[in-house]
Amino acid sequence: MTLTTADRKYTMFSPVLTVLRDVLARPSGAIGLTLVTAHLVLALISPLIVPYDFKATNSSMMLTGPDMAHWLGTDHMGRDVFTRVLLGGREALLVTGIATPIAVTWGGFMGIFFGLAGGRIDEVMMRIVDAFLSLPWILKMLVLIVTFGTGVEVLIPTLAFFYGIPVIRIARAATHDVIARDFVSAARARGHGRMTIIWRELLPNVLDTLMVEGAMRWSWMLLAFSSLSFLGFGVSPPTPDWGLMIADARGFMSFAPWGVLGPVVALSSLIIGINLTADALAKALGIDRAQKAPV
């Protein structure tokens, strides 16, 4: 026997590295991952590098255009837009960064469970899922927020709950593809329990789909969070937030467009970055069937 720990490590990490390399080799993956990484790094270090205090108002400097001192101009209260754009994604990334994994985890498990259980449980639960999906998202969310308030402690579970529901559908469909395969029958015939089959046979094969779905959900969730802020149900002033900034500045858009442009570019670049990464990831994992190798 010539097994060393080094060999074991190699097989454990090499698939991840291979996929990462494959993602970066695609133009969409390289651009997307660069954008996402830049946003994450900036969100982490922005409090240390911002040029001004984000809540320092200046009544003599209202709505001035971009210049050397204020790269993106100032808003209607004379605050530096560049500073606020740098800081404006922190809250959104924090909330969605926590809510997305929760959504994917609970949605994924429910989906796999219903897919495996089949029969009447599956039938009833999927109709409930359909009912939820048929309601406009903003309506569902506003009802909960109006009932329970707007803080982070409400926003995270609300977003995680509603964005987990479409994940159930995706995970169930992926489970159905896997369940028909003989290795699941083999595990049943050996006598493994249902949890072992979910954990060891199904989950590893559904994980790819869940990862891609998670990335897509993340970008949707960012958009939803910013929309809530835009409507005044998200982050409360004076904390800077892209959605809130767009809402504040849109009245002056005709003569001071920089107030809207800054947060819009920031938010869209992050969402585009996530979508490009998800796209490249799907191709690298082979979920996108059109991109399979020729031979």
Partner: peptide
């Protein structure tokens, strides 16, 4: 089983 591509979990 007939087809080992199907009877072996590709992730194991």
């Amino acid at each position: 089983f007939q087809n080992p591509d199907d009877s072996l979990n590709p992730r194991h």
